[in-house]
Design a protein around this nucleic acid. Sequence first.
RNA 1: GGGCGCGUAGCUCAGUGGGAGAGCGCUCGCCUCACACGCGAGAGGUCGCUGGUUCGAACCCAGCCGCGCCCACCA
Length: 876
Amino acid sequence: MATDRLADLEQRTRYEPTEVEARVFARWEEAGVFHAEPGGDASENYSIAVPPPNVTGSLHMGHALNGSIQDVCIRLARMRGRRTKWIYGTDHAGIATQRQVERALEQEGTSREEIGREAFVERVWQWREQYGNTITGQFKRLGASLDYEDERFTMDPAYVKAVTRVFVHLFKKGLIHRDNYMVNWDPGLRTAISDLEVEQRKVVDTLYLIDYPLESGSGSVTLATVRPETMLADTAIAVNPRDERYSRLVGEAAILPLVGRRLTVIEDDYVDPEFGTGALKITPGHDPNDFDIGRAHGLEEVTVIGEDGRITDAAPERFRGMEVLEAREAVVAALREEGLISGTQPWEHEVPHSHRSGRRVEPLISLQWFCDMEQLARPAIEAVEEGRLRFHPERPYTRQYLDWLENIRPWCVSRQLWWGHQIPVWYRGEETYVGETAPEGDGWERDPDVLDTWFSSGLWPFATLGWPDETPELAAFYPTDVLSTARDILYLWVARMVMLGVEFTGRLPFTDVPIHSVIQAPDGRRMSKSLGTGIDPLGLITGGERPPVFEEGGDFPPYGADALRFGLLAMSSSQDVKFNEERVKQGRDLANKLWNATRLILLRVEDVEPDPRAAETVEDRWIVSRLERLTARVTELFDEYRFSPAALELYGAFWSELCDWYLEFAKPRLYDEDADKRAVSAVLLHALERSLELLHPVMPFVTEEIWSHLPGERGLLAVASWPEADESLVDEAAEQQVARVIAAVTELRRYRDEVGAKPSAPVRGRLVADGYEEIAGQVARLGRFELVEDGAGDGEVLATVPIPGGGVQVLPSEAFDPGEAEARIAAKREGLRAEIERAERKLANEQFVAKAPAAVVEEQRRKLAEYRQALERLGE
RNA sequence: GGGCGCGUAGCUCAGUGGGAGAGCGCUCGCCUCACACGCGAGAGGUCGCUGGUUCGAACCCAGCCGCGCCCACCA
């Protein structure tokens, strides 16, 4: 059996992720390691609620990065022995999902209006059945150790109950009310959207100057607007009270062209006398500022643009039914005809657009449900101020979060959609009923609107665990620990979860919020499906066509999930970064390196227990010590949510220290058939075991696969213990000594390279240096020198290669022609002289010696002495 | 309009007060008995610019130039 295991290793000289990953994942699932039965207390358990992807969505780069980050946290906690649950589920994603199904209906030549609400909602459920689990398979492919056995959906009956409970509670508390108010209307989706779903885009419009004749007949007032069509809804003209140019007009009236309405001239401080003509047309029905001014002055609110984006019957007949842009042209033409346009100019400004449909937002007065947020915001602010809720990195997110909450405005929660949580309000005539279930009696009609998707996602961390029922899951896993996200949904989702979590559970839903990079396309543009700049993470895992955003074409090689995870973690930080395929390649190479280092070790070691205390040589003590430091460092970085440095640190330590140096140091003992290999075997197995443990959260597949090849019965790595750094194994002396050996070997290799020594022939030399007693053989072997004792016939010393603590005298040999070495020695002397001069200058500076810390000064003195010695040896 | 961030090797990015780093790319030499997805050696940065603070600045401060993000109701 052990021989089978080794034969397998012997044959596979390359790590093949595709073949391994499916098999390893199946082992995890069979063992049930991703699911934890509720028990214990939330404070000792560990949980994360995954940001729920859209039901019909598929894995994009953001999911892949965020999934990798969360999986690191989850696997780390699991290895630390905590009862760990990564809460899984999907979001019904109101608008996005509804749009997909609408498009499908359009393909079939029908529409949601045609089939009716009930049938439409039924269709969406079918859609979800059909496309709803794509992403589950993709998360598994990534190796995400989510609790797939316990999947939630924001439209599950239990979740609906939670949403309803919350709405009713907030209503009874007086925080939710219905009002006619100005909202952001998306004419494409035909629904109201919240302020957060609006994005400002720079647009060049035409600014029109329009003359409004005065009622008195004595001239006119000129007004500026970029939206002439809205003049049809003007109900006043405002000027600044301190603006003397207009003071005689206050209280007078103008006549609205094309309409004939009488517009009183009012005074309001909002108007900037410096801007435009200093007079402002007031359109309370179609402009948020004018709306406020209108309410303050009790002006009439006229609506000329309807929810369908067309001109309403409130406008003169000739404009009715027109689209907004059509109406704009018609109004301008009509005004021109009357000679009332006194000028135009191009006008660049920011215009609100719908984040979802991309359409220009139409500010409209509409009857909607609003939630007052100020009261809910207070504890959410305090939690951050008191350090109970932390963002990582702290800057700039803490400040941004606080600024937003401190200036929070009412949240428009109703949406004119069919797919979502229908608002639990019923009407009968003038009566309104708000409750968790339909009211008794006939004639009640339910409010047709649904709630903003973010209203239900705001309950995610506790509604997924069964709230409002007091379930065992809720007791065991709420509050959760971490909420990982990109910054784009900090307000939209994170802040709202905090507010609602505190309001309904009395506790923060999580305590730490790591915020990761947004990964851009390689050309620096946003990754987006519509721009064609998206990169499918699955294509990188399994190998697939390289999308056109890459300069080079062709297919991705099958990098594997570990490589993608490593790459994403290594390339990300808090800053936005361009996608970098090289990092993924680096991850693949690391997996292969791990595999092959394993082959060397397992095919050569004796069957002993891994044991760092078996170290017998200085190199052994060195690697053991380095691994302890690595353990401490990586643990610290993970705990600080600094995944990129952690991944790179692991890579560097494993590759350079373990593979490039320690494995080379170990080879003589491994390959010597007569040697007692027990000590080196115990240390090698320890080094491998420790490396696998530390790398497992980042690269779970390859580490688990290798783990299964280790000798002995050891169960799954996924549930092995996370190592704790052991101070007593840190060995300063060994670290210093091996650092000198490494420097010495590098010097010798460089010398060989520069004098053009034949690759296979050793250079003869004599070691004249202190501190290499135990390890001179290693220096000679790795530096490819043949070190001889003093003796007759050594020949002339051709040169001295300076190494820490002395030098190596080079003696004549077959390896190279001595003439070629001279230039190199001269250059070396030059370099040393420069170093000596720099150090001398620094030490001659009295201020430096007086004010710099003693250790810094001492270090300079030490270096100076070292360089002087080296120069001396080179025959200055 | 307000706030925040970035500008470091050809490319992508680390690095917050004591001699400039990584990966890839490049040059030279190696199929050396784990790995060519490899091994060894090397070249390559006046750390955006200008001042200042400091014994000492990529790092702290001020200004400028160039990019980017967030927030905001100036027609």
